[in-house]
């Protein structure tokens, strides 16, 4: 890394810093984050899908499976086996600074609604659309 502004060592401006670990904003940081997460998931007995590198699955003892879907640092965990689910969540929160938001309500600006009596899941972007239209009107007026 180049020497940070204001902290250059005088007379040695041509030298660069050797990093001991990753920093925010580096070109490599997303990759390092993914490598770290991938290594962790492998220790949990999960397998990475060949079709989508952000999908991890794990076979449980009762033949059901757990799926974890990763989007940068947001994730959804799906599965039937409650013990295995809470074990995975516990291990995740021990390794990473993680918040468990309970049943998924929102992901990437989409609202997830479940109707358990009809056994249906609804995905909607109503909030995004209203926020965006207000935003656009505001921008039009300010020009």
């Amino acid at each position: 890394m180049e020497q940070p502004k204001g902290y250059e060592v005088s007379g040695k401006e041509h030298l660069v810093c050797k990093l001991k670990k990753s920093l925010y904003g580096l070109k490599q940081s997303p990759r390092l984050w993914y490598q770290k997460f991938d290594a962790f998931m492998k220790t949990q007995g999960c397998t990475r899908s060949n079709e989508d590198p952000c999908l991890y699955t794990k076979k449980c003892s009762d033949e059901s499976s757990i799926a974890l879907i990763l989007y940068v640092d947001d994730m959804l965990i799906v599965g039937k086996n409650k013990d295995e689910l809470s074990l995975l969540k516990k291990n995740l929160s021990q390794t990473f600074d993680m918040k468990d938001l309970g049943d998924a309500k929102h992901i990437l600006g989409m609202r997830i609604t479940r109707d358990r009596s009809k056994r249906c899941i609804y995905l909607s972007q109503a909030e995004y659309i209203s926020k965006y239209s207000r935003d656009l009107i505001w921008r039009m007026q300010s020009r």
Binding site: Y122, L123, S124, A126, I129
Partner: peptide
């Protein structure tokens, strides 16, 4: 805007 995808 209230239209949504329905699975299941």
């Amino acid at each position: 805007k209230d239209k949504c995808l329905c699975l299941g």
